[in-house]
Amino acid sequence: MDWNRAKTILIIAFAALNLFLAIQVYQTWEKTLELTDAHNITLRELEQLMEEGNIRLDTELPEVKPDEMILKATLKNVDDSWEAHDNYFKQTPENPIAVKDSKEIGTVLEEYVPDFDNYELDTFSSTSSRYVYQQQWDDLPLFDATLSVQLKEKQITSMHWVPFDITEESRSKEAIYSAQSALFALIERGDIPDGSVISDIRLGYHGKNYEAQTYDLLPSWRFTIAKGNAFYVNAFYGDVETVPSVKDKN
């Protein structure tokens, strides 16, 4: 074996890996920096930027700032009628359940899901063949705690459930981004294309499961573009996550 050649290849590979990681770190830092600069944006500055890009609000801009609360959650235990998977539960009725409309779907779910009155329909994630509901906490949606109902020919064929138990609440000393500051940064950075219509702005909790069935949930703004994507903006750190639209394409 040519050890000198092998050594050279390893050095090049490590150098390429370090360069890739450095680029990722820089891009994350750049995104956060841009949002940090937007902390003190005035409403007039936001309106002027929207006018320049012909961007329109089809919903009210929330004036309230998020609470500084951080939540920890675990996957809730449910009864044996639900089939357990890694991070969700599933139930498939023996016979599909006929439903006429969303009201009848809600009536059915009240029989299957404890505390279903604590869930609200998420129109962004829902389609004609899938209704998605989000668990609420302190009148705010837990964006990741969902109940998804699969439909076929106006019949419920299966249900996927990610129920959360909030196990810990704590407060952060981090500065909070208002809706107008977060929106200004998204537009200025080019995430929201010119000519877009913002159909919904919603405050809730969003996060990741870093350990099995354990979630860290932070206050986040969700900006929804009419007939387009949605953007989650972490209200503490300014991290941005883009969620593609799941609407029917037919």
Rank of each mutant, 00 (worst) to 15 (best):
M1F: 07
W3G: 04
T8M: 11
I11Q: 13
I12Q: 11
A13H: 02
A15V: 08
F20R: 06
F20Q: 05
L21W: 12
L21T: 14
V25I: 14
V25M: 06
T32R: 13
L35W: 00
T36W: 01
A38V: 04
R44C: 04
L46Q: 08
L49S: 11
E51A: 15
E51G: 08
G53L: 05
R56Q: 14
R56I: 13
E60L: 12
L61E: 05
K65F: 14
K65S: 13
P66Q: 05
D67Y: 01
D67Q: 11
L71Y: 05
L71H: 07
A73P: 04
V78A: 09
S81R: 11
D86H: 11
P93S: 12
N95C: 01
K100D: 15
E104W: 02
I105E: 15
G106Y: 03
G106C: 06
V108R: 07
V108T: 11
L109G: 06
Y112W: 12
V113S: 03
D115M: 04
F116Y: 14
D117Y: 08
D117M: 08
D117A: 15
D122F: 05
F124R: 05
D138M: 13
P141Y: 03
L142D: 11
F143T: 06
F143M: 05
L147I: 02
K152C: 05
K152D: 15
I156P: 09
I156L: 11
V162R: 15
V162N: 07
P163H: 04
P163T: 05
I166A: 06
T167R: 04
T167F: 01
T167W: 02
E168G: 01
E169Q: 15
A175Q: 08
A175K: 07
I176E: 05
Y177H: 14
A179N: 01
A179V: 02
Q180G: 00
Q180V: 02
S181I: 07
A182C: 03
A182R: 00
G190C: 03
D191T: 06
D194P: 01
G195C: 03
V197D: 07
V197Y: 01
I201M: 11
R202W: 01
L203V: 08
G204R: 05
H206D: 10
H206V: 07
Y210P: 04
A212K: 10
Q213S: 13
R222L: 14
F223C: 08
A226F: 09
G228C: 09
A230L: 10
A230I: 09
Y237A: 09
G238C: 07
G238L: 04
D239R: 04
D239Q: 12
P244C: 07
D248H: 05
D248C: 02
K249P: 00
